[in-house]
Amino acid sequence: MTNTTDSRTAVHARSLAKTYGKGAAEVRALAGVDVDFTQGQFTAIMGPSGSGKSTLMHLLAGLDSASAGQAFIGDTEVTGLSDKNLTNLRRDRIGFVLQQFNLLPMLTAEQNITLPVELAGGTVDRDWFATLTNTLGISQRLNHRPSEMSGGQQQRVAIARALIAKPDVIFADEPTGNLDSRAGAEVLSFLRRSVRELGRTIIMVTHDPSAAAYADRVVLLADGHIAGEITEPTPEAVLAALDSLRTLEVA
């Protein structure tokens, strides 16, 4: 157990690498990354297309297997877990918010939200459920099916689903990618509120500087390497940092 990190670290990676293909066709998506994500913080991972930001998230969340290095959720090493243990890890300790919302069309909003708890065989914490749905403003829509809700509402249901089991960390992959700017702003505010008011840890992958500005900290990725970070970001600062990355690429 490598535990050289701060006890408040929720997720961390050590020399995490991922290569696709072999020989001449080999692509290094992630080239040995060391990164820590603090508990109770909202972190954005940014970078140009192909910088490896999605790969980093997949590896941290145990959705994909690493070629080398280690990833940890709390003290648990994710890399090297069996499929069964990974499934349980995802069920109990990770929440996902995805670009396509990914709600199950045959279930109502409420059934979608409580599904992770039911899959774990637990009982739903009704107070927590009420807090979540009230905070997210979806308590009136609980009996609707996804097809009867707007994109913003669907994404808020997805956030509630990610939070219901009080996971150690929530991974959000372009959560505003399919939303208009107003709905997108709402969703981001909710994510920030769930960190500030509900004490959650969120790691969000995005390519939108204004989305990243909602985070407490921005980790910049380029060519599979950590290329810097910004704390207390503003859209302008993020944009400037991205621009400098692009210049770097050209150079």
Binding site: D83, T87, N88, R91, L98, N102, R161
Partner: peptide, 14 residues
């Protein structure tokens, strides 16, 4: 396919 993947992601075993 996408739903199956989502279910797997949120913790449904194979």
């Amino acid at each position: 396919q996408r739903e199956s993947a989502t279910l797997r992601a949120i913790g449904l075993s194979r």
